[in-house]
Nucleic acid binder design. Structure first.
Length: 352
DNA sequence: GATTCGTGGCT
DNA sequence: TAGCCAAGAAT
């Protein structure tokens, strides 16, 4: 009979192996009474949604340097925040980030609510993030369930029910293990374990503090858990982007509508992006000009489709008006303000 | 419950 | 290379 897993065994491991992360209060510091800043915990958790620590680090540094408090962020211009988020993906997060910051200032006196139910009401804050902020910022013993926790629980219990069907079962396992003491450290400990030891492929079971409690280890099934329902194949879409450069160097860009793909982000005017099995999208240049097609295509893969983008360029005179978008002065534009697919189109047009 | 929503790294 | 994967939320 294997041992039951205990939170204290994982906390002991965490005390020795906790990764040093910019938003993290190390366990020794927490024990000495240092408390987390809810703003930084919240910001990091939003950035970390479906995003790796490596990708988040620099964005977190830039955001906290430029907007050190929730009041600073709430007072920021929308376009500045969207530009700063460019490249990180899932842009609804950035739109909700601003909504949330402004709600915290306007409705909560500039303080993040410590109450889990109140956190859950904030824009962009779902079950995971509300629990994580409760636990990490306020040491409230909420049940934190992310992809790491799901994987660790599936293995501890050798649970073969596929996700997402298994979610309620795995959540119940997680709830049974969540301790009343040090819930913030515990939540981070499970996620660290999942990120460094109990990894999706080739888990390092020999280093795991819960090995003797793990049913999948006993059965030799750890690497194949959790089971997941198979994903659908991505269709291929195609479209055209129009890069108009005015003779003074200004670029013709548009802010995309808030809803939908790349919502709220800066982008090149273009055609719709349609499945390649349909007719080619109708040409729709945003300004009258002599358009030239750039050799090659910009290729990009989104969550649910591949895109092949034709890029056309034109040089236009000062006085000519565009039907869509606005010219942005060269001094007010950086390619890094663009979402990656738009930056790829820019790079292709530049000959890169 | 199923879809929509990015991106970069790794195998 | 083509698919898988990452501290999910909104609809």
């Amino acid at each position: 009979m294997r041992d039951p897993a205990e939170a204290s065994d994982l906390l002991d491991w965490y005390d020795r192996h906790a990764r040093d992360l910019p938003w993290r209060i190390r366990p020794q510091a927490r024990a000495a009474g240092v408390t987390a800043d809810p703003y930084r915990i919240w910001l990091s958790e939003i950035m970390l949604q479906q995003t790796t620590v490596a990708a988040v680090r620099e964005y977190f540094r830039v955001f906290t340097e430029r907007w050190p408090t929730v009041e600073d962020l709430a007072a920021a211009e929308d376009a500045d925040v969207m530009a700063a988020w460019a490249g990180l993906g899932y842009y609804a997060r950035a739109r909700n980030l601003l909504k949330c910051a402004r709600s915290v200032v306007a409705d909560h006196g500039g303080q993040f609510p410590a109450d889990h139910a109140e956190l859950l009401k904030l824009p962009g804050v779902g079950p995971y993030t509300a629990a994580a902020v409760s636990a990490i910022a306020f040491d409230d013993a909420q049940v934190v369930v992310d992809g790491n926790v799901e994987r660790v629980m599936a293995r501890l219990h050798d649970e073969h029910t596929p996700l997402p069907e298994a979610k309620p079962i795995l959540t119940a396992y997680a709830a049974a293990l969540t301790p009343a003491q040090r819930p913030g450290d515990y939540a981070q400990a499970v996620m660290d374990l999942g990120a460094t030891i109990c990894t999706p492929k080739r888990p390092a079971c020999g280093l795991c503090p819960w090995r003797t409690s793990c049913a999948a280890w006993a059965e030799g099934t750890a690497a194949e858990l959790p089971k997941k329902t198979p994903k659908k194949k991505k269709p291929i879409r195609r479209g055209t982007a129009y890069l108009a450069r005015r003779v003074d160097g200004a670029w013709l860009l548009e802010t995309r509508p808030d809803k939908g793909l790349l919502g709220g982000m800066l982008g090149w005017p273009g055609t719709d992006w349609l499945d390649v099995t349909l007719d080619a999208p109708v040409e729709d240049p945003p300004i009258r000009a002599e358009w030239k097609t750039v050799r090659g295509e910009a290729r990009h893969t989104f969550t649910h489709f591949h895109l092949i983008l034709t890029v056309k360029t034109a040089l236009v005179p000062m006085e000519r008006n565009a039907s869509r978008g606005e010219f942005i002065e060269l001094s007010n534009f950086s390619p890094s303000d663009l979402p990656t697919v738009m930056r790829k189109a820019f790079d292709l047009a530049q000959g890169g």
